[in-house]
């Protein structure tokens, strides 16, 4: 937690990152607010999805959008400093957060498994698609928690890189030269 706070202090001491954070937050918040209610609309995303927003969806949207926006700012900062950023956990967290409500209860998975079954007739009549969908539907909260944990991990990993600063690797040749 200290690393994240320290990294925030470093990054937000520069005004431009506050603006990037705000814009990123608004973009991610919009995406989450549209995507999360799709678990109630059969995967359909439109302006009418907003009518299905409930307290839980709004809270999750705000939390995940805030984390995603901070990660985005940290990654941009690291990139500008010429350092590499950790993107794998962030990508995982974003994908799981967006995909979970889209796949739960929508026709997407049954259609996809139907196509697979047309290639592998042995799967015909199996409940493979609905079983995967049932798993997503009954473990939705756990999947969101996992997505949030991945986002927090990504935030921490990138915060650590920011607080460690720019690392210059001394080659053995340079060290030998220093000795001479």
């Amino acid at each position: 937690m200290n690393k994240i706070i320290s990294a925030c202090k470093i990054v937000f001491s520069l005004g431009q990152y506050k603006i990037i954070a705000l814009i990123s937050f608004l973009v991610f918040l919009t995406l989450y607010l549209f995507a999360l209610p799709s678990s109630y609309t059969g995967g359909v995303i439109s302006f009418e999805s907003l009518t299905f927003l409930d307290g839980k969806s709004v809270f999750l949207s705000l939390l995940m959008a805030a984390l995603a926006a901070l990660i985005m700012v940290f990654i941009i900062y690291l990139f500008k400093q010429g350092q590499s950023a950790n993107k794998a956990s962030a990508t995982g967290g974003l994908v799981i957060g967006f995909i979970t409500p889209l796949l739960c209860c929508s026709p997407l998975l049954p259609i996809a498994f139907g196509l697979i079954a047309s290639l592998f007739p042995a799967l015909n009549g199996s409940f493979l698609g609905p079983r995967v969908q049932g798993f997503i539907a009954t473990h939705q909260e756990a999947l969101f928690a996992f997505a949030i944990m991945l986002l927090i991990l990504a935030l921490y990993q990138n915060a650590k890189r920011i607080t460690n600063g720019v690392c210059c690797r001394a080659s053995t040749m340079n060290i030998k030269n220093l000795g001479d």
């Binding site: 609309t41 209860c105 049954p110 498994f113 139907g114 698609g129 609905p130 049932g134």
Partner: peptide, 24 residues
């Protein structure tokens, strides 16, 4: 296809007029 949520609107003549999902 084993949709989790699908509905069929059938008229008085026994004709399926609509096949859709998510009644809400």
């Amino acid at each position: 296809r084993h949709y989790a949520d699908v509905y069929f609107l059938i008229d008085e003549q026994g004709m399926v007029q609509v096949v859709s999902t998510s009644p809400a």
